[in-house]
């Protein structure tokens, strides 16, 4: 029965009394890559936060199941342990916490959750160095405080590094391609492609067709005003690139 990775049904969510998500339906199967595109303010990041369990969102209707479990009943850290990963649109700076410490604590926390042994300092360094190498990142990333003073692109690559380390079943990438130069974009795409496999799914939130040229999605959805208004194959992204969202944002607001 769990040949579904993520199943969102009629999801409604409010922020400060204002309804942002107005009935989302979305199903992702293991191994699939889905993309969500949509105008600014349509609710893409809100969806990613609701999935990862951020405070401040009230779910008024609907359900989300993740690998057969009721996702909305889990704490954020339990969702991470279950294998959900969110690459933030705006990664958070944490002064005073070295990136290594952060990564080690995170990796060990999810390993513990999954019934695996914690890595000691030495094993962890081996592990993380290998990941850095795979992603073509410098060791220097590890010493600095989490995202503090990182350039926009470095922050996004740090998200990809965390994703690679945490071995998620479903990774939601919220505009991880925004603000990247061409080489960095390729590197991020390669990072994602390297992780693709029959058991791992991706939800890519993006404004640009370019990313989808590197990571070819199985499905593309258009999110507008809190609803998925169209779904198609990779060609839908090309159509949006050419025509914009005019056809979708013009729709009348349902009461």
């Amino acid at each position: 029965m769990t040949d579904s990775m993520l199943k969102i049904e009629n999801l409604h969510a409010e922020v400060e009394g204002k309804e942002i998500l107005k009935g989302i339906d979305l199903e992702i199967r293991p191994g699939e890559v889905h993309a969500i595109m949509g105008p600014n303010g349509s609710g893409k990041s809100t969806l990613s936060y609701v999935l990862s369990g951020r405070e401040g969102y009230e779910i008024t209707r609907g359900s989300v199941s993740f690998k057969g479990k009721d996702l909305l009943a889990l704490e954020p850290e339990e969702r991470a342990g279950e294998g959900l990963f969110l690459a933030f649109q705006y990664p958070v700076e944490i002064p005073g916490v070295p990136n290594t410490t952060f990564l080690r604590e995170a990796v060990n926390a999810v390993r513990e959750y999954r019934g695996e042994e914690r890595y000691d300092a030495l094993k962890f360094m081996k592990f993380v160095r290998a990941k850095l190498k795979e992603l073509g990142m410098a060791d220097e990333f590890l010493k600095r405080a989490v995202n503090v003073g990182f350039s926009g692109g470095e922050k996004k690559r740090n998200e990809v590094l965390q994703m690679a380390c945490l071995d998620p079943s479903l990774a939601v990438l919220d505009e991880t391609d925004s603000g990247l130069d061409i080489d960095a974009l390729k590197a991020v795409a390669e990072g994602v492609n390297a992780l693709r496999g029959p058991e791992r799914s991706f939800l890519l939130i993006t404004h640009y067709q370019r990313l989808l040229g590197y990571i070819v999605p199985d499905r593309v959805h258009v999110l507008s005003r809190g609803r998925i208004v169209e779904t198609g194959g990779p060609e839908l992204a090309e159509k949006l690139e050419a025509e914009g969202y005019a056809a979708y944002v013009g729709e009348p607001e349902a009461a």
Partner: peptide
């Protein structure tokens, strides 16, 4: 920052 860490698996 607290949410960021929790989303990476650390409990509160």
């Amino acid at each position: 920052a607290l949410f960021y860490l929790r989303s990476r698996g650390l409990d509160e």
